[in-house]
Computed example of a mutant assay.
Amino acid sequence: MTPPGLWLDGSARFGDSALFGPLSFRAEAGCWTVLLGPSGVGKTTILRLFAGLSRAEVSGGFGASDGQPLAGRVALMAQTDLLLPWATALDNICLGARLRGERADPARALRLLAEVGLAGMERRKPGQLSGGQRQRLALARTLMEDRPVVLLDEPFSALDARTRSEMQALAARLLTGRTVLMVSHDAAEAARLGQRILILTRAGLAEAAAPEGPPPRDATAPALLQAQAGLLARLLAA
Rank of each mutant, 00 (worst) to 15 (best):
Q195F: 11
T220H: 15
L232A: 05
A87Y: 03
N92M: 11
L90N: 02
V183K: 07
L8Q: 08
R234M: 09
R192E: 14
G96A: 15
S65I: 07
R98K: 14
A87M: 14
A140Q: 02
A27D: 01
R202Y: 01
A18M: 14
V41G: 04
L174K: 13
L175C: 11
F50S: 01
L143T: 08
G177R: 11
G120K: 07
A158L: 04
F62L: 15
T45L: 08
T179D: 10
R147Y: 03
L174H: 11
P22G: 09
G230Q: 12
L23M: 14
C94I: 04
A158E: 08
T176R: 15
G120V: 03
L200Y: 00
G213W: 04
L137Q: 02
S24V: 12
L19R: 09
A12D: 09
R26E: 14
A97R: 09
A109V: 05
A78H: 01
R217D: 12
R202K: 14
R73S: 06
L129V: 07
P214L: 14
A208Q: 13
R162W: 13
D105L: 09
R164M: 13
A188H: 04
W32T: 04
A171Q: 03
L236K: 15
A158K: 11
L110Y: 00
R124S: 12
R178F: 10
P3M: 07
V116E: 03
P148N: 05
L118S: 05
A187K: 04
R173Q: 15
A56V: 06
L99R: 12
D146E: 15
K125H: 14
R73A: 02
L143Q: 03
L129Q: 02
S54H: 05
G67M: 10
T142Y: 00
L8P: 06
G194R: 02
E207R: 05
L82V: 12
F50L: 05
K43G: 01
A221R: 09
A209F: 00
I93Q: 00
G67K: 12
R26G: 03
E207S: 07
P222W: 06
T163I: 13
W7N: 04
L53N: 01
T142P: 05
G61L: 00
W32E: 05
E102M: 10
L113T: 09
L170A: 03
V183Q: 10
F14D: 11
L159K: 03
C31Y: 03
A203W: 11
A97M: 07
L181Y: 07
D186R: 10
N92Y: 06
G21N: 02
G5Y: 03
A12S: 04
T176M: 11
G177K: 06
A119T: 00
D153V: 09
V74C: 04
A237T: 13
W32F: 15
E122Y: 01
S54L: 06
G5F: 08
A210L: 12
L198D: 02
S130K: 06
A87P: 09
G131T: 06
A109D: 01
R124A: 14
V58Y: 04
G10P: 01
G177H: 11
P85L: 09
L35A: 07
S54G: 08
